[in-house]
Computed example of a mutant assay.
Amino acid sequence: MFSKLSKGLLAGSVATSALLAAGAATAENMVALLLPENVNPRWEQQDAAAFLQTMKEIAPDVTVEVFNANNDTATQQRQAEQALTQGAKVLVVIPIDGESSAIIADTAAEESVPTLAYDRMINSENTSFWIQADMFATGAAQAQHVVDNTKSGDTLVLLKGSPTDPNAGVIAAGQISVLQPLFDSGERKMGYENWTPGWDPAIARRSMDQALTQLDNNVQGVVSSNDGNAGAAIAAMEEQGMAGTVPVSGLDCTVQAQQLMLLGKQTQCGWRPLHEMAAAAAQVTVRLLNGEEYADLATETVQNGVGADVAFVPVTSYSAVGAEGVAYVIDNDPSITKDMVCQGEAASTAFCQ
């Protein structure tokens, strides 16, 4: 489901089914979208924007309140309580912490309000729905790209994600599934690894600076868990005259990441159709508002960290490499255009001519 990508916000079949589901929504309905932070531009510029646009199309009488917790779990919990006090009928939550966010779903359940986990799982028995790509496969693709572009004996750096983000651990596990056999055999060397609390690029930059110092710049590949980490690693290597000589993976395919890819400084990024994730979240939200079944929207059931069965919609993902990967993302991501990518230094690349 949701594998058909298009330049429009929704594929026709998705829009049709959602419109049919929207009929019973009323002006008295309010839903809350709780974002984790604004360090990564995708949350506000892509996920929230697409969710708001989809809700406007399929349920124009529903009010959507958007909150951003700025990477503070206590703030996110207070925002959830505020939303419930304001009368929210559904919570769509991108948790900062998959464990502590359970209190959000549990508190909402006490008021008979369902909680939808978007992107990151919420480890609560009261999580109604989860929407995400296969992050293990995404991590494996990141690592495989770096392996394919390094040689026997080369030294790698791993810049992992936020330790409180459930996805970060899954991504790292996917990476290690590829890398550990090579580390064990000596085909590749683990030079340095570190987590990045809050996915903060400033922390990733410090980690990369430390890695370069400890290894005396003897780094041939960077397995980075997202584009923010990748950009930080590239900035650190730029100072050492290494940028563009070392493969660097990423995730999200932000405009900046695509520009770096065209310049040959970032070499890979994992892309997910965030507009389709948001569309799926909107469809489920409207079904929940209307008290309707949503089993047809879920293709799988997964168990979360507390053993609860959660309806799951997996979305597709794509490993974008080089200019060809940039072209794919531009063709399939309605939030990004060639004009946006072809700015600054990237404008002089062959792709942009």
Rank of each mutant, 00 (worst) to 15 (best):
V170D: 02
V170S: 01
T213G: 10
T164C: 04
S225E: 15
M237P: 04
Y192S: 09
E187W: 02
I234H: 05
I171S: 02
P247A: 13
W199P: 14
P166R: 03
P163E: 00
A172D: 11
K189N: 14
Q210P: 04
M242E: 06
A202H: 07
Y192H: 14
G231A: 11
A235S: 15
D209Y: 02
T196Y: 00
Q210F: 01
N217H: 10
D184T: 12
G174W: 10
A173S: 14
S224D: 11
L215H: 09
Q210S: 15
N217F: 12
A204E: 09
V223Q: 06
A232V: 05
C253A: 15
A232K: 04
S249L: 03
V219F: 11
I203L: 13
L212V: 07
G241D: 02
A173G: 08
M190W: 07
T196Q: 07
L251R: 10
P181N: 09
D165S: 02
Q220T: 12
T245C: 07
D200S: 12
S185E: 10
G250K: 03
G186P: 12
P247L: 08
A235T: 13
M190K: 14
Q175R: 10
K189E: 14
P201L: 06
V223S: 10
A173D: 14
G241W: 09
A173H: 01
L212R: 07
E239V: 00
A230F: 02
D165C: 04
W199A: 13
D209T: 14
I171M: 08
V222R: 01
G186N: 08
I203A: 09
Q214E: 15
V178W: 02
G241N: 08
M242P: 00
A233W: 01
G228S: 11
N218E: 15
A172T: 10
L179W: 00
S207C: 03
D165Y: 05
S177K: 11
V222K: 01
D184C: 06
V223H: 09
W199K: 05
T245G: 11
E193N: 13
S177W: 01
G191T: 11
T196K: 03
I234K: 06
W199R: 04
G198R: 05
N229Y: 00
V219W: 10
E238P: 01
D184M: 04
I171N: 06
E193I: 01
A232E: 06
P201R: 10
D200W: 04
E239L: 02
P166T: 02
T164N: 09
V170C: 03
A211P: 12
N194I: 01
S249R: 03
L182T: 06
E238M: 10
V248Q: 01
L182C: 06
T245L: 12
S185A: 07
G221L: 11
N194E: 13
Q175V: 06
D216M: 13
V178K: 12
K189T: 15
Q180V: 03
